[in-house]
Write a protein that binds this DNA or RNA. Structure first.
Lengths: 158, 158
DNA sequence: ATCTATATGAAATATATGTTTCGTAAAATC
DNA sequence: GATTTTACGAAACATATATTTCATATAGAT
């Protein structure tokens, strides 16, 4: 399932992680390969699903989403029906940007954004605490954003 | 600092969060507004910084980055020089995708990707534990990805 | 070393794109 | 209610774009 990429593919991907709207010709300038080849490589990478999507990344604060929090959720009983339902409901909530099942003292780790603390509280009370089987919930509110990127490291071979 | 957006702007942003390479004409079809207006709105949103960037989002697993972990880092002494140095070094590490200063029992919460557990261990030993003033470090390894998106919620007014 | 398969760059093609202009409509101001 | 300002859509413009074709080079297999 892991693609094998050469230096050329990695250059293309690196450039597109920074500027997703680059054209084949611009890619060619950045990579030193011809536009036609860049285009063919690009299509292959899209086809293979290495490039999942192109997205506009928006400014959270400018959209009025002042709050960002990590939520650590423990599940009471691990009934599969409950777990499936929890996961599905989480997937549907737009303010949950990330959710992973994790090791450590919580079962799930979420990253959630909200307009303000009252809005976040509403998310907890009206949504999270209402999920079936949810046990302990601990919140870590982000005080400061030090880094936030979608760029995956492409250094070595894959 | 928070922009005020009308329904039209929000439609444009919503569409571009899903498909970042949409042209003005495609945006026009999706929003029911003319291409010229879409283009003007779009430029204004870019200019205002609401649209931070356009990016290709890659498939972590396909790139061979099997491991994703949350790291909770506590700082021994909060000397400002140490904190600044830590933050700057973290920003420069490509395997750290996210880092926030957070409330709760850790000072920093990081999301880190790695090729495998050995690779992740190397990150901890050779980088994180070497940072000045770093105290307790607890890792939560992601067992399963339930949701991972860059799409910010645009529902209500801002 | 020969043959085969694959990847390459340059040029050509057709199309879509960003961007501007202009006359009109809607909103806001007075 | 009149006037100014702002936003709009349609059409026009020049340009850049994706995509294909073809001849050549490269690499892999036998």
């Amino acid at each position: 399932m892991t693609m094998s990429l050469d230096a050329q593919d990695r250059k293309i991907l690196a450039a597109l992680q920074k500027r997703g709207r680059l054209s084949s010709q611009e890619l060619a300038e950045e990579t030193g390969v011809s536009p036609a080849t860049c285009w063919r490589r690009l299509k292959a990478l899209e086809e293979a699903g290495v490039i999942e999507a192109y997205r506009a990344v928006l400014d959270r604060e400018k959209l009025g989403l002042a709050v960002c929090a990590f939520v650590h959720v423990s599940i009471e009983r691990q009934y599969p029906e409950y777990v499936d339902e929890i996961e599905e409901k989480i997937r549907r909530r737009p303010e949950v940007l990330e959710c992973y099942a994790t090791t450590g003292d919580a079962d799930f780790t979420l990253r959630v954004v909200a307009r303000d603390i009252a809005d976040y509280d509403r998310f907890l009370q009206k949504f999270l605490f209402e999920l079936p089987g949810v046990g302990r919930v601990r919140s870590s509110i982000a005080l400061r954003e030090i880094k936030q990127t979608t760029e995956l490291p492409l250094e070595r071979e894959s």
